[in-house]
Design a protein around this nucleic acid. Structure first.
Lengths: 342, 342
DNA sequence: TTGAAAGCGCTACCAG
DNA sequence: CTGGTAGCGCTTTCAA
């Protein structure tokens, strides 16, 4: 197995100087190269299977073709992958590649992780999080292009952009999914109390109520922690409280918990009680019985946006942008028109 | 925001040559340096916040401190993250960092993705997959250390190691979870027919049967596709067939589907029917009602092993190793002793 | 139209 | 003990 051929090898093979090889391979139009020479170079390169050493290119150019992703919980979250996939899509299109480090829990480890990225001279940093939370930004001491996807800096500048899901709108859509089908005895099984996502989605609920002329106070509310288990407990509590016909859940996992509880209580879903989820979680929402009517978290798009931002020329936008990505409603089977009161 | 200081800057500040700075900072013991000089260098480095440029180091050394991860479905799979986390853990410990590319579906895109990693001079390649499947290895033309985690090469050499979960043993454990609690009317709701994981887990089931003196043929069997939905359908079919007291499912998602079906059929879980899952899926198995008794897929450990392999000195093992990582049984609430026959 | 030469930031050899 | 010097593989003046 031979070592990788270098530009010098190609030059030697083509009988030209290394400089010329560089010109040809970089397709520089400002430097005229004789067609015959160009052909020879291309041929030699192809023959040897030459591929430029990106590390060397980057070093010389003083710029880099690597994006650094600082991930907050790449593990366990099925979403994290989708966001990284979006980033990669943009990266690949621009000839970039991604380095990923997971944010360790301790502050020191996290700073070190970010620095390890900087030490490799990444072109930019993306703080990526599947949950909408504040993150501590590492003081780098050097200017590096930064964008936040799914999170925002609790300290320091917000970089070039903060990309967040439009959870208010998503919450509104989730509520409307039930409201529009005639449901008025509604319980809101929120996620973790006072977390940004929870607050936003609940605000959307209030908006939706106002839109259909229902008093927001008439919605029963309780909070869990986005786990299946908390959905289960909250649903039991709710149904003991009143004969709700629709449960609006903090996320799909809580919706799943709610379904489990409803089954135990012998309520048919969606026949007797409709359930709306949130997240459109991969391998869950669509596969459920009944399949969840839910709101999709646009992680892929968020990642795409973040990646595009950092791979596009430094450009003009000096004022950090705050981008709210739409969360579309996905209508499936878990919400049906309210049945006539028995 | 100043540019990153280089070694020359440190040297100037300390009033020594750049060479000396290199010696000191690399802590080379073979080259004696006067304590006073060393102190001055260290001081200057600290003052300037100097950090070596890894890209330059790697270029010079001709070796690299980056691991390339070729991920098969980093998206959607909650596991992928755990495996990458394991790889990262090993990587960090050795001063490495990871570049991740997701394997595109088309062959061409995939080869290009792998090459883009090689172009950056990664120290090694890890083909990582959350599902036990064969992958097409890219012909690189150059020798690069490779290990497979959760997959194996369907073409070419198996690299240094192929790391797989011990699904036979896992399947055995899953079956024993039911068998040991007296269950004998058992249905096996397998995953995708003839997929490696399915085959192995079923083999484990046969082993377990033999151990407790039950005829393997006495276990009812059917296959789905590892989705919630298929678990649901298979469970309905099974229960229409016979009065099973335990359902051994292909994975936790199928187990979830089975629970849903059982609820609909008004069978109490686990009171009337026990359910055993597989995967110990994050945010699912533990949060379920009842929490799943399941078998843990050791993705983190597999990643760790893969990472350690590639960050350890080239070493001796020339013969590719086949490593089977144990899948421990996690006992929770979804399996209980069989109730006295009514 | 082509090539010699100077580095990017770093390591490592060898002379002093 | 310390520092000059030669590169790693590449881009980019500047001359020929």
């Amino acid at each position: 197995m031979p070592a990788r051929p270098t530009m010098v090898d190609v030059a030697r093979h083509a009988g030209v100087s290394q400089t010329t090889v560089s010109f040809v391979l970089n397709g520089r139009t400002d430097v005229p190269v004789a067609p015959e020479t160009r052909r020879r170079v291309l041929e030699a390169a192809a023959l040897l299977g030459y591929r430029p050493n990106r590390a060397a290119q980057d070093l010389k150019r003083g710029s880099s073709s690597v994006l650094g992703i600082v991930s907050n919980g790449i593990a366990s979250h099925p979403f994290a992958g989708r966001m990284i996939l979006g980033i990669q899509k943009a990266a690949r299109a621009a000839g970039y590649v991604c380095m990923v480090v997971d944010m360790p829990d301790d502050e020191e480890g996290r700073d070190e992780a970010v620095r390890s990225l900087l030490d490799r001279g990444v072109a930019g940093l993306i703080y990526a999080s599947p949950a909408t939370v504040p993150v501590r930004q590492t003081e780098t001491g050097v200017r590096v292009r930064t964008v936040f996807s799914g999170c925002w800096p609790e300290n320091g500048e917000p970089g070039e952009a903060v990309i967040l899901p439009n959870d208010v709108e998503g919450g509104r859509l989730a509520a409307r999914a039930a409201l529009d089908r005639g449901h008025r005895r509604i319980a809101f099984l929120g996620g973790t109390y006072q977390e940004q996502a929870t607050v936003d989605r609940e605000r959307g609920l209030d908006l939706a109520c106002a839109e259909v002329g229902m008093a927001p106070e008439d919605v029963w509310r309780a909070y869990g922690d986005y786990s299946i288990d908390s959905g289960y407990r909250l649903a039991r509590t709710a149904m003991a409280e009143d004969e709700f016909t629709a449960l609006i859940c903090g996320n799909d996992r809580m919706a799943l918990g709610a379904v489990l509880a409803l089954h135990e209580l012998h309520y048919d879903v969606p026949g007797r009680v409709s359930v709306v989820g949130y997240d459109d979680q991969e391998e869950l929402a669509e596969e459920m019985r009944p399949a969840f009517t839910t709101v999709a978290l646009p992680h892929y798009e968020m990642g795409l946006l973040a990646g595009e931002r950092l791979t596009s020329p430094p450009g003009s936008p000096t004022v950090p942008e705050r981008i709210l990505v739409p969360c579309p409603l996905v209508v499936r089977a878990s919400v049906v028109p309210v049945s006539a009161p028995s």
